[in-house]
Amino acid sequence: MTPAAAVNDSGRGRGRTPRAAVVVFPGSNGDRDLLEALNLSGFSARLHPAHMALPADVDLVGLPGGFSYGDYWRAGMLASRARAVQSLPAWLAAGGLVIGVCNGFQILVEAGILPGALSYNQPPRFVHRWIEVEVTPAALRNQSPWFGQARVGDRLRMPIAHAEGRYVHPQGDDVIATRVPLVYCENPNGSLADTAAVLDDSGRVLGIMPHPERACEAVLGSDDGAALFQSARQFLTSQESA
């Protein structure tokens, strides 16, 4: 069942602009950036406060970058207890796509929705840099909706901006082979096997450390990130018309 068909009556519908909600946590600072990127890629996106359960009428949920609760104690931990995140598994069961960017990725792993953990960078400091990531076979393995327009070996240029982005996982190899759709071309933070992004089993939940939402217009340095959002939109609209 497609996300749109699943909750057709409650607002998701055929033949219209897919809807997106960007969750705003106290301390989020990338919420507007993600909102603009989604709108630019053909979504009708709105902001949604973290203390409310996720709305049923949206096809995509974005967890933005930033410093939710100041990143205090452990990045993403405090935000992962918010009601919007706690309602995420139930929301996902009805279909739908999720992207967590940077702090959003940290929240997804803290909530246990994605495997592994994100720890302090090696070397241990915040790093901002324009980097390239490469699409791996895992991106296409489960026909992930996020990579419909991608080919294995494609390189995407986008910025990273984080202090706790070193991906770690106890059973590294299995995860890498099946769940890591993007790897850093030059590892900036000591991530296990150059991991830059992780998918869940279904391929519908994407956690990504670099910022595709800041790479949607050539004049700002790159429009490679738009491919992810456009893939997601294409997936949602083609599901609706199928």
Partner: peptide, 25 residues
């Protein structure tokens, strides 16, 4: 400058090291 977030806000046309002055859209 790599310890500073230069692109949050999605307006940075030229950040540190990219031109003789910073440019925002």
């Amino acid at each position: 400058y790599s310890q500073f977030d230069q692109t949050v806000g999605n307006r940075t046309v030229c950040g540190p090291g990219q031109a003789s002055a910073a440019v925002l859209r």
